[in-house]
Design a protein around this nucleic acid. Structure first.
Length: 229
DNA sequence: GCATTAACCACAG
DNA sequence: CTGTGGTTAATGC
């Protein structure tokens, strides 16, 4: 982790909707209690089980939120910046219930927990934006849970590919940021099943694939597979 | 029964 | 870290 350290929230171009509604004085408060950091691919940003001391705001890059279950690691969600992570921890418990790891070079800002709470108490609009963001997250998570539980592997993998293309990379052709094993943790499958299903999709002409470079060739069909499960 | 799905295991690049 | 193949348990005609 490198520390560019000092940041200026007043001139920051990628600040959140929440921070957008802060007044001048509040921005000053934030600025003096905020520090930037840079993570490389596969570097842990915070660790499940450890004490949570900061709110994390992901500015650029891509991260996974994951949690060690009884048998193996599970990726709860992929977070595309800009986005706050760790709000549930700060407001709900002191210990991280999950880990966050960078999947590509990622920049974040840490905000001192107490200051974050102060801003919530002090500025209703700020609090409202925070709640909005939490609600969105919860709704997406419900949808994803249903999909994971009721679809079989082709549908789940199609979901993941469509999500990566449409939500993360905004392109039908992208470099897979996850290993096969990670992808398995994400869609609730073994790495072998991921490999097999991907090569099946390739031979069926649904996708093109060279190593980690994926191109969605037949999106209509992928959508149908995703819907049918 | 028979087919399908997907995990588990082992071994090889 | 990946790809493949054999095996196996569960589920559904």
């Amino acid at each position: 982790m490198d520390l560019p350290g000092q940041v200026n929230c007043e001139t920051c171009r990628i600040r959140s909707c929440a921070v957008e509604v802060l007044d001048h004085q509040e921005l000053q408060i934030l600025k003096t209690n905020c520090a930037g950091a840079v993570y490389k691919k596969n570097e842990r940003i915070f660790q499940q089980g450890s004490l949570c001391s900061n709110i994390t705001y992901v500015k650029t890059g891509l991260i996974k939120i994951h949690k060690n279950g009884p048998s193996k690691d599970q990726i709860l969600k992929l977070v595309k910046p800009p986005r706050f992570i760790g709000i549930p921890t700060v407001l709900g418990d002191k210990i991280n219930h999950y880990s966050a790891t960078a999947l590509m070079p990622t920049t974040v800002c840490f905000i001192v927990t107490g200051i974050f709470k102060t801003l919530i108490m002090r500025n209703g609009k700020f609090a409202n934006e925070v709640i909005n963001s939490l609600c969105q997250d919860e709704l997406t998570f419900y949808d994803r849970s249903i999909n994971q539980m009721q679809k079989q592997i082709h549908g789940r993998l199609a979901d993941a590919l469509l999500f990566l293309a449409d939500e993360i990379f905004l392109s039908d052709s992208f470099e897979l940021p996850l290993s096969r094993s990670d992808l398995g943790d994400y869609i609730h499958a073994t790495r072998e099943s991921v490999t097999r299903t991907l090569s099946r999709m390739k031979s069926d002409g649904l996708i093109q694939m060279q190593g980690r470079l994926i191109t969605l060739a037949d999106k209509e069909m992928l959508v149908r597979i995703s819907k049918l499960g």
